[in-house]
Design a protein around this nucleic acid. Structure first.
Length: 268
DNA sequence: CCTAATCCCTGTAAGC
DNA sequence: TGCTTACAGGGATTAG
């Protein structure tokens, strides 16, 4: 379940391994993850040199010499790894002219890989909100956005049209550190609290990137290694364990068809 | 327009 | 032991 910090870690790894490499061969072992014809996908990648690698939201964007872009959305169980062995979950293998390989693994096949000329060909990029680390994502934007809706704050954080890149794990952790209940209606949150949540969004995501992400189940970085932020999770996956702040037991509830972990005593 | 619910997929774990 | 069922959740789509 890669969220922004995990995808950012992978992109930084790929920038070390992949830049300037030329694709000599693409092996499509499972065309389902392409959602388009394999022949066209292969044709547009073969012989192309990687010019740049970036991230937008939870999507990986690989710029090619042809000015086409390979867009990869890992969704829940997608992995993009160098120096790994192929197995039954290997859906696509990219082979480079220097003999190295990049594997796309995906246990549950929710991920998608597409080659496009412009990002707006993929609807995801058209509706995506600001990047948390961008100048657009200001405390003012945060306050104004929360005023507009009565939805629970947890659901708003998960809404990628509001801000890009936050998933279930970090939404829980951000609200814990902000001492705000995930069930609190967004429009009832004070300006001061909105500022705190804004600050925690930037802080938690930044700290998670510094720890190379969170490996809860499937996530692995570009080298197949786990991220260490998992050890710093205060509430996620900790139902029934004592709150690190007040020792009350962490609760698990369902919101927007996702599990929410929180401390009912110190998150108000 | 806004929001909630449902679906996609498969490995793992819990329950009978 | 072995089968069945529930669950994990990013994002598109459908329903209300």
């Amino acid at each position: 379940m890669p969220e922004l910090p995990e995808v950012e870690t992978i992109v930084r790894d790929l920038n070390k391994f992949l830049l300037s490499k030329t694709i000599s061969k693409v092996v499509v072992r499972d065309a389902f993850v392409l959602r388009t014809a394999a022949a066209e996908f292969i044709k547009r990648l073969k012989g192309q040199t990687v010019e740049n690698i970036s991230r937008r939201g939870k999507a990986i964007v690989i710029g090619l010499a042809s000015k086409d872009m390979l867009v990869i959305q890992l969704m829940m169980t997608g992995q993009l790894v160098m120096h790994a062995a192929e197995d039954k979950h290997t859906r696509i293998t990219f082979i480079f002219t220097d003999g190295s390989k990049l594997l796309y693994h995906d246990q549950r096949r929710f991920g998608q890989l597409r080659v496009v000329r412009h990002l707006h060909e993929i609807n995801y990029f058209n509706i995506l909100g600001p990047e948390p680390f961008s100048q657009e994502f200001t405390p003012r934007y945060m306050r104004e956005s929360l005023k507009k809706t009565a939805r629970p704050i947890k659901n708003v954080l998960l809404d990628h049209t509001f801000v890009a890149g936050i998933g279930n794990i970090y939404a829980c952790e951000i609200l814990f550190r902000s001492k705000v209940s995930p069930q609190r209606s967004a429009c009832q949150i004070s300006a001061a609290k909105a500022d705190i949540i804004h600050h925690q969004i930037v802080d938690v995501l930044g700290e998670a990137i510094a720890h190379r992400g969170t490996s809860f189940r499937n996530y692995r970085d570009g080298s197949g290694q786990k991220g260490s932020f998992s050890q710093r999770l205060a509430v996620y996956g900790r139902e029934g364990q004592p709150c690190p702040r007040c020792k009350a037991l962490i609760q698990c509830i369902s919101q927007a068809s996702r599990s929410t972990f929180y401390c009912a005593r110190c998150q108000k």
